[in-house]
Amino acid sequence: MRWRAVLALTVIALAAAPATAEIKSGSEFLSPEMRRQQADETRNPAWFWVEQGEELFSRKPQTGAACISCHAEPKQSLRGAATHYPQVDAASGKLLNLEGRIEQCRIERQKQPGFGYETPEMLAMTAYVASLSRGLPVEVKTDGAAKPYYEAGKAFFERRQGQLNLSCQQCHDGMVGQKLRGDTISYGAGTGYPAYRLEWNDVGSLHRRLRACSLGVRATQFDYGSPEYLALELFLAGRAKGLPVETPGIRR
């Protein structure tokens, strides 16, 4: 009865295989023109933020050191850094996304007041640091210390919420490619954030996008950097493993 065991193992293997195989980036659902615009630094408005972030990175505050004094040659030393976020901070055991790590450096190492989530400085800095990983595959850890956060994010993604009683999964797995008014629903990969959204006429973080989806189903909007959205961010990144970082993206 060996074939049975083999069959059983195959079934288990299939069941355990991550559903990430066919996940596509949000940019695949854009018009070809918008995709070209995203790829072209001279036509992608989000590059202004990247440039501002680059400048800020080497600017020395009146007291304390510039980022670049610890991270020399950022194009090499920070290449790929963003692909590992969110990650569990070894010292505190807390889940940090890229914004969280930047804020930690700013306050603890640079000894400056924090930027604050969604401020122009934080958006510029996050866009810059993430842009150094452009094209590299998302590679977050979802096991070990990260596992409970990942599981919490997964549970959030799967549960119905809000007055309209819809889960993230119902839209971003079940209705991918369908039209929700003017938008084509994507997998909700989030690999382009911070991104320039036409609707915002501005660059915004992933958590700003998540708040928009929460509001869309008339659910509680969690705070920027809240544990709920951090866990969700880790789940989304785990699901998007292998997809290239596109920051700074352009979205509708």
Partner: peptide
């Protein structure tokens, strides 16, 4: 149309291009 941004984003100085003159000012998170 759909899934608009939350109208109550944190205080921001100006829309459009990032302005970095705020440096050093403490910005209330959240």
């Amino acid at each position: 149309s759909t899934f608009r941004p939350p109208p109550q984003t944190p205080p921001r100085k100006g829309e459009g291009l990032p302005r970095l003159m705020l440096l050093g000012e403490a910005v209330v998170v959240g």
